[in-house]
């Protein structure tokens, strides 16, 4: 083998090692289990809304989003729902959307629960905890703040005060 040929083989092998090794190491560093992280994109979903329509995440492309995971069994989730409603009224004129994904509860539970509130923002229904798992939600409530360019600005775990919600939505519009 001539010198230049040998060099090409060496470089090819080193690049191969760099790519494979980089992929393997990078996977351990940057994505814990494929769930979305701050700075990443929220996974696409296709969920039923309360009016029976099918809503996709991509339908809301280009708009600032608040994606909230909630359940009737989770008191802080319930507590922040009227606060989200007030924030929705305040910001919807500017293009804000709130998508509140229920944690795979059954029809009766969700329907009856919602009768207690007067919510205008989009309530979506998960099934078999699929969306919840795709988003890596482990504690409730968990709220994703998504910038208009589709990038996750913040993942907030736990209940929020209205001021805290307002502050974060203001941030979304600043971008």
């Amino acid at each position: 083998m001539t010198g230049s040929k040998r060099k090409i083989v060496q470089i090819a092998i080193l690049i191969g090692v760099l790519l494979l090794g980089g992929y393997a190491i990078g996977k351990t560093l940057f994505s814990s289990d494929g769930t979305p992280q701050v700075g990443g994109k929220p996974p696409e979903f296709e969920l039923a809304a309360m009016d029976g329509s099918v809503q996709k995440l991509s339908d809301y492309k280009g708009r600032p989003l608040v994606i909230n995971f909630w359940g009737t069994f989770c008191p802080p989730c319930v507590k922040e729902m009227p606060e989200f409603q007030r924030q929705y009224v305040k910001w919807k004129g500017e293009g804000l959307e709130i998508l509140a994904i229920n944690l795979s509860e059954d029809d009766i539970t969700v329907t009856n629960f919602l009768k207690r509130f007067n919510l205008d923002y989009q309530i979506l229904r998960d099934r078999d905890r699929q969306t919840e798992k795709a988003y890596g939600v482990r504690q409730y409530p968990t709220t994703f703040f998504v910038k208009p360019n589709g990038e996750i600005k913040e993942i907030f775990i736990g209940g929020m005060t209205e001021a805290a919600i307002d502050e974060r939505i203001t941030e979304l519009f600043r971008n």
């Binding site: 090692v17 494979l20 090794g21 393997a24 190491i25 351990t28």
Partner: peptide, 9 residues
Amino acid sequence: IGLLVMIGT
């Protein structure tokens, strides 16, 4: 994983 990659190399 880095060590394994180096052993492989």
